[in-house]
Amino acid sequence: MARPLSGLARREARWAYVFLLPWLLGLVIFQAGPMVASLVLSLTDYDLISSPRFVGLGNYAEMLEDPTVATAIGNTAFYTVLHVPLALVVSLALALMLNRVTGRAAGFFRTAFYLPSMTPYVAVGVLFLFLLNGQAGLVNQFLGLFGVDGPQWTTDPAWVKPGVVLMSLWNLGSTTIILFAALRNVPRDLYEAAMIDGAGPWQRFRSVTLPMISSALFFVVIINTIAALQMFDQVYTMFFGNQTAQNSYGDAALFYVVYLFQQGFQFLHMGYASALAWLLFAIIAVITVVQVKVGNRLVYYEAEPPGGTR
């Protein structure tokens, strides 16, 4: 049973709600309202121009028979499974490096590591079309230095998604900063105690660092998974941004949201696009619930949540 809140906690909670209010208003007006509208529209045949026509669960039934939905889910899942662990490992490595830099250089490196995240996604997409080009791109030129004949990252269906994963590592600034902040919060005395007990660097990392930043790791796994499942901007720019691009790459990079967008705005199947949006919402919800269930067993929370029963 929850403990009653103290007077201070009640005041803090009230202020918390005041500060949350603008966001909550935004959520209701700009997110919840349109989401309800899209739920209704997912039950209709709607081409944006004429009035919606109620079709019940017809759009959802159509999704089951649409092979492209399976292709899009497969592409997105492939990307997510590769991207999330890789992003986590690389971000953590970068954060650990940043954590070792002290003095004046620290500010410079923190800025430099975050800077790529400031690049607009569309620009990143265009940039990587050049970098990943199999004939003239810098990535393959670099591989060539080691005698590796690089693949056709942008045109070979087998290599398009790995190429997109490679590109996704450009935008790790936010994840790195979150993990870096968590690393800064690990108490020094824990390391000192571990060293006195004879723990080496790996043991300190394994038994002190990882548990102490596990809540931050858990958080970035969840947000990166959601972002990966929603991947759109860079891929659309690279492979679907204009008619020539749409003519050329097939469905190797047809990610789920790209297909949703095509159905809505290219073929004017807004009802179907809305149903696709809700399927993705359901998929993300299920994956997040599973992650939370698993995460609660693995994550160490330093402070008990107020009124918590853990």
Partner: peptide, 21 residues
Amino acid sequence: MVVLSGALAAVLAVAACGGVG
């Protein structure tokens, strides 16, 4: 996705209410 579906739905909602012309 949430952002995109929100934007999409906002367009749809406006479309449903406003009427062409």
